[in-house]
Amino acid sequence: MTKTVTLGALTVAAFAAGAAGAATLDDVKARGSLNCGVTTGLVGFAAPDANGEWEGFDVGVCRAVAAAVLGDPTAVTFVPTTGKTRFTALASGEIDLLARNTTWTYSRDVDLKFEFVGVNYYDGQGFLVPKALGVSSAKELSGATICIQTGTTTELNLADYFRKNNMEYQPVPIETNGEAQQQYLAGACDVYTTDASGLAATRAAFETPGDHVVLPEIISKEPLGPLVRHGDSEWGDVARWTLNALIAAEEYGITSANVEELSAGTDSPEIDRILGTEDNLGAMMGLEPTWAKAAIAAGGNYGELFEKNIGENTPIGLSRGLNAQWTDGGLLYAPPFR
C-alpha cells in the first residue's frame, strides 16, 4: 500500500515538472543552461580535466552553441553518455544537443529520427598494430584477434571489410577505450581498431608510442557531427548555423582574438553579417544579433578549436587532412551567410 502511495506522489511531482514541453530553444532559454551530451571521456574530444572541467573538441561545439543561445559559454550542463545511452538521452529530451563523435548514418538520421546538423570532423576507421607484428597492410590481418569498442559503427565496418576481403578474424568486444588499451598492450589482441582520430589519441597515451603503427588503410567513412531531435527545425537551425559560423569564421579569418575588433565593422559585408554588425541574422532564429560573435569568442573558430584540442601540437597530433577548409583542399565548406 505504501508503495502505491509513494508512486502516486512521484507522479504528482512529475506532473509539476512536465508542464513545460514547448520548443527546445525556449526550453533552453528558460532553463538558462544547455544540456549537452558528450562521451564519458575521450581525450581531445571530451574529457574532464583534473579539476572536473570538461574540455575538448566536442565540448567546444557545446560551448559555442550555449554562447550563441545564452551568451554564456559556461552555461552548459555536460551529460556523459555511453554508446548505449546517447540516443535515448537525446530522444527523451534529457539532452538538447548530442556532440559525441557520432557517425552520421542513414538509419540514425531516418529510422531513429535524428537530425545531424553538420559534420565537425571527417574521420575514418583505421587499425593500430604493434610494429613487432611486422604487418604493413590491413590486407595481411587474416586470422588476427581484433579489439573493438562496442556500440560504435566500428564493428559493422570491420565485419563488412573482412567479409569483403574474404578474411577471418576474431572480435574481442570491449566496453571502454581504457580497457581496450589495456588488452591491446597486454597482447590479448593483435590489432586495435577504431576511428583514426581515436587511434591517434590512444597511441599518444602509450608509454612508447613509437612501437606501434597505424596501418595506412582507412576502411570507412565516418562523418562525425552534432545532432538534435527530428521535428524541431528552429533548434536544428540554431545548432547548424552555430557550427557553420565557426567554420565560416576560420575561412574569413575571424578568431577569438580579433572578433571584438572586427565586430566594430569591416569592409567585408559577409563578416559584418556574421558578427551582426550589418543586418540582423540572429533575429531570424530568435537569437541576439551578436550570437555568432559570442559563439566564436567562446572558444575560437573551427581552426582554433582544432589546434587547441586535437591539432598537431597536442599529444593527439592530428593533421587537418580532410578537415581543412575547402580553400585548402579539405571538405569544410560553410554555406553563405545571407
Binding site: S107, R108, T150
Partner: peptide, 18 residues
C-alpha cells in the same frame, strides 16, 4: 566482453539499432 544475451541483444544490437 563475453557475448551472452546481455552482450548481443542488450549490447551491440541495442547500440546499433537504437
Amino acid at each position: 566482453g563475453y557475448m551472452d544475451i546481455t552482450g548481443t541483444l542488450g549490447g551491440i544490437t541495442l547500440n546499433q539499432t537504437g
